[in-house]
Design a protein around this nucleic acid. Sequence first.
RNA 1: GCCCCCGUGGCGGAAUUGGUAGACGCGCUCGACUCAAAAUCGAGUUCCGCAAGGAGUGCCGGUUCGACUCCGGCCGGGGGCACCA
Length: 838
Amino acid sequence: MRFNPLTADAHWQGVWEERGTFRASDERAGSARPKAYILEMFPYPSGRIHMGHVRNYTMGDVLARYRRMNGFEVLHPMGWDAFGMPAENAAMEKKVHPGEWTRRNINTMRAQLKRLGFALDWSRELATCNPDYYGHEQALFLDLYEAGLVYRRQSEVNWDPVDMTVLANEQVIDGRGWRSGALVERRKLDQWFLKITDFAEELLDGLDTLDRWPDKVRLMQENWIGKSGGLRFRFALAEPVAGHEGFEVFTTRPDTIFGASFAAIAPGHPIALALAEGDEAIAAFLAECKRGGTTAAELETAEKRGFDTGARVVHPFDPDWTLPVYVANFVLMDYGTGAIFGAPGQDQRDLEFARKYGLPVPRVVAPSVEQADEPVGDEAYIGPGVIVNSRFLDGMSVESALAEVIRRAEAEGWGEGTTVWRLRDWGVSRQRYWGTPIPIVHCEGCGPVPVPREELPVVLPEDVAFELPGNPLERHSRWRDVPCPQCAGSARRETDTLDTFVDSSWYFIRFASQPADGPFDKAEAERWLPVDQYIGGVEHAILHLLYARFWTRALKRIGRLDVAEPFRGLFTQGMVTHLTFQDEEGRWLTPDEAASHPGPVRTGRVEKMSKSKKNTVDPEPIVDQYGADAVRWFMLSDSPPERDLEWSEGGIQGSWRFVQRLWRLASEEAERGGSTWLGGGEDEGLGRKLHQTIAAVGANVESLAFNKAVANLYELATAIEKAPPSPSRSKAIRTLVVLAAPMVPHLAEEAWAALGGEGLVADAAWPEADPAMLVSDQVTIAVQVNGKLRDTLTAPKGAPREALEEMALASEKIVRSLEGRTPRKVIVVPDRLVNLVA
RNA sequence: GCCCCCGUGGCGGAAUUGGUAGACGCGCUCGACUCAAAAUCGAGUUCCGCAAGGAGUGCCGGUUCGACUCCGGCCGGGGGCACCA
């Protein structure tokens, strides 16, 4: 009599849905019950659910079910991050409308998710590609626009001249478009930006409050925001150049100011551009700089190159000291001021540059005064030390010299201490069809004009063609050409759409509150937010999580939502991996192909499941074969959730065995008549094991250590199997079913019903561990001689030190180990060990 | 180059503050049931050794009565950022 998931899964899923078991109540949240908002990163509807989704949503589900059983009102919603490029690619390749393709995928994936029995509130399901989602997003965009947090400026993009589209950096491979293979150009386009840099300081400071985020993610965001303190100052040109009398530079090392041997400006610097107007050699150099690749590898190997402009700047501390001005390819226009001074003795890049162009390399920092005149070799000295060869700074530490230069610069009025950020404003314009239309109209007379609120949503036109390259919105004159909302003159809609990261920057708010007439209701959203536990892949550690934090803070600033940080707890789960297989010619084989391949098969490394390596395992046939619970159980077993999990046939079979084992325990108990068992007394040992397990599983689920909770349940099951029938055993079986319910909910319902449990096990209360049962009155004491274990003995709990020492000395093994020596020191840790030092 | 994380059996991994290393699972071995196989159940499984015993958490050293755990230095693997002044 096996547990049959084929019938049980569907049955219990139907019962939960019918009863609305997992529907979250806004009224109860926070009033009748404490609230818990559990969220997993919503999926992109790519076609089918993959194992990564299953793992991610299973973890969230266990936590959601566990919280419910602990009396929380739980919000656990699901939706679709439904805009994006793959839909347009599908449209081009398969001649299907992106909307149709997306909606079809959503239907498939929803059905797949439902088969896994997740405790989701489907009544709140949303898809970002629906006007009743993105229309509200347009309203929020206008709110930010009116608050001055949105602006428009020219910006360089990667332009694919064949596909006539903008490419993300990741889509440029070796300088060519990933799809067309055409050489990518750098083009300047007018684009919309969100002022995330306005929030740099608070986004950085806010990280300190996120104590339930992984340190790794906080660190990555900190580096991304990249705060640097330093000095910004003005270099005066000895002779004016193309109308400029000087330029500003930024440095984090003003203490090295007397080590300066040149100044350098970026190829895009206004002075460089002005010089190029009248000088073909400079113009040629600038063109050369532009051509260079932008990939990481190219930049790493790129040579430092410069062009001596012939101009000179005056050293701020010495009017008689001038420095040559170069245009240098390693100076970035969009960081700091786009210009630097070079101190080759203390900076590796400056050193390489100076060596190449024969510039002096003075030492101004030395480990000690005695090393003041030691020449700098192939490596710049960036360590701590004392300032040398620097006039009034000589003898100071790096820190005090730094402060002193800033103080003088400010006092003398030629510079000031400032902070520079690595973080750039967020460019949100995408020259794409399948995204949220930016609700702006461009009027020849009035310029950019917001679409009036009553005209929202600006709906994407359905009748678009993808035969031609480029953005179909630009060609759709009926949609594009509209009168200006201000002057009624002729105008055009903005044809760019929003970056899909905008869509995912507020979906968690819409889940919490979804009125028809606005993005969300403030009070209702604040009832649920912040998300108590957010779970997703570490690949979103920076962009999505930073954008969502920014968006939430922007809403707070304009008074729409009083929440500073959207995600109270964050967990980044590992990937699902699998063995890879190749045939004799190096072609990748699927696991099935590998098994039936006639020739030799090379078994490769364990890698992330991916289509290109053909090592994916589709969850659906696995669910068909083993049922949802076995798959869920496997996803939680073995590997710690933050690490990668290797899919294996053996693993899923082991999970299947355990599901059946649990069922056997429960069904045999049910046949026996459950709690009406009359023989035998209480089984104290089993009772202790039970309560220890209750405590351990609870603690481990709370800390998301699902692999340990799984181990706890295995142990309890084994202990029950080995125990003779007794009331304790009957109780342990019922409790085991409750403890396992968040992980294997279908089996648990079936077993619960068989055992005559009241209502649904999903609604059952999480058992409480009896503290008195967690400690036993006998403890095992380790006995060591010189720190090495020689014997163990059993003693009553709380036995006094002297008694333990005496027992240890009486042990035959200990006597032998001591070889007649008398211990000169005895360390006793009560209830733990005795260590005899001889 | 800079920053961060991780090295424990054949494998995935346990080990709350330094206190019996290897829980639990996979795999493997032996046994039971079976005509047989599958399934299931039982026993065993860090290494060397018949045993007594010894060694053992990447390597070297240190602190300690006692180190997987703390400190220093190496080696190996992984991740993030990347010409950020």
